[in-house]
Simulated scan of single mutants.
Amino acid sequence: MPFIEESDLLDLHKDIDKAQIINERLLDQIKYKNKDLRKIRLQRNVLLGITGLFVIGVLAITSFTAGLSSKNSFENNQNNHLLVSIDSLDAIKTRIDNLKEQNEELSLVREFYLAKAFIDKEKIYSVQVKSFVDNNVTLASEALTNTLFVKTNPFYAYSLGNFETLDEAQSFRKQLVQMGFKDAFVASYQDGKRIQIEDPY
């Protein structure tokens, strides 16, 4: 195993802590965004209901006044209602456009969670760089992306990278070996568990 200077290890810990804080903030932002999008969806449904009632009410009032009014007053009222309806239709169209944009943002958040769930179910490859007897390693964090910290009895394995193909993982392993991690090897994982140790070449 390569020798790591204490200052380099401290810098690595600091970088990992910073990345963990950033990831936690991003997860919090996603949670708040989901709450906002739920509120917006509820507001949209309420607005559509109110708009439907409004349109029905306007049509009922228009037809009622049309039967009671003379021909001239009927034409004047219809023109006035038409102008009011056009103005309110523009406001409704603007609101619908805003809701479409917010719906697209919600779709992006949903796609993120679907992709994460897909990765968890699919077989992935990662490069194990170290094993520890104890589970008190500050290098490991579930909030960090592209890292795995898996219990492989009786050890805790620390792996870097999430790759779809074995070739990508083997190429990354070669880079780590050149950096001094001579004991690094490729393993396959699925559902957060190691399946097997793969051929390193």
Rank of each mutant, 00 (worst) to 15 (best):
Ser126Arg: 04
Val137Tyr: 01
Leu59Asp: 01
Lys31Asp: 14
Ser107Gln: 13
Phe3His: 09
Leu108His: 06
Gln190Pro: 02
Gln128Lys: 02
Phe54Ile: 00
Asn146Thr: 04
Glu122Asn: 12
Glu101His: 08
Arg44Leu: 12
Arg110Pro: 00
Arg38Asp: 14
Asp134Leu: 07
Thr65Val: 02
Arg173Pro: 05
Ile50Met: 14
Arg41His: 12
Ile4Arg: 15
Gln190Leu: 02
Asn23His: 07
Glu104Gly: 06
Ile92Glu: 11
Gln175Tyr: 06
Phe155Gln: 10
Ala184Asp: 04
Leu9Ile: 05
Gly57Cys: 01
Val129Cys: 09
Ala19Met: 05
Ala91Ile: 03
Ala117Arg: 11
Leu108Asn: 10
Arg25Asn: 13
Ile96Tyr: 09
Leu59Gln: 02
Phe118Thr: 15
Leu139Ile: 05
Glu164Thr: 14
Phe155Ala: 07
Asn80Tyr: 01
Asp199His: 03
Lys174Glu: 15
Val137Asp: 11
Ser131Met: 06
Arg41Val: 08
Glu6Lys: 12
Glu24Ser: 07
Ile195Thr: 11
Asn135Tyr: 03
Val133Gly: 03
Lys100His: 09
Gln43Thr: 10
Gln43Ala: 13
Ile92Pro: 00
Asp199Arg: 01
Asp134Cys: 03
Phe155Ile: 02
Gln170Phe: 05
Asn76Ile: 00
Glu164Tyr: 01
Thr165Lys: 12
Leu160Arg: 04
Leu114Gln: 14
Asp183Leu: 04
Gln78Thr: 01
Arg194Cys: 11
Leu26Arg: 07
Leu176Phe: 03
Leu12Val: 02
Asn98Gly: 10
Ala157Asn: 12
Arg44Pro: 04
Leu82Ile: 00
Asp87Leu: 11
Asp36Ser: 12
Lys174Ser: 14
Ala19His: 02
Asp134Tyr: 03
Leu166Trp: 01
Asn76Thr: 01
Asp28Pro: 02
Arg95Asp: 14
Lys193Met: 11
Gly52Lys: 07
Ala115Gly: 09
Asn153Lys: 10
Glu198Arg: 06
Leu12His: 07
Leu68Trp: 01
Ser63Lys: 01
Arg38Met: 09
Arg44Thr: 13
Thr62Ile: 00
Ser73Met: 07
Asn76His: 06
Thr51Cys: 02
Leu26Gln: 12
Ser131Asp: 11
Val46Lys: 15
Lys116Arg: 15
Arg95Leu: 15
Asn23Lys: 10
Val150Tyr: 04
Asn76Trp: 01
Lys193Ser: 10
Arg95Thr: 14
Leu42Lys: 14
Asp87Met: 09
Asp36Glu: 15
Leu59Tyr: 00
Asp134Val: 03
Ala157Phe: 06
Val58Asp: 09
Leu10Trp: 03
Asn98Gln: 15
Val186Gly: 05
Phe112Gly: 08
Asn136Asp: 11
Asn146Ile: 01
Ala117Asn: 14
Leu53Phe: 07
Leu12Tyr: 08
Phe3Arg: 10
Lys151Cys: 09
Asp191Ile: 00
Gln170Ala: 08
Ala169Leu: 06
Val133His: 05
Glu101Ser: 13
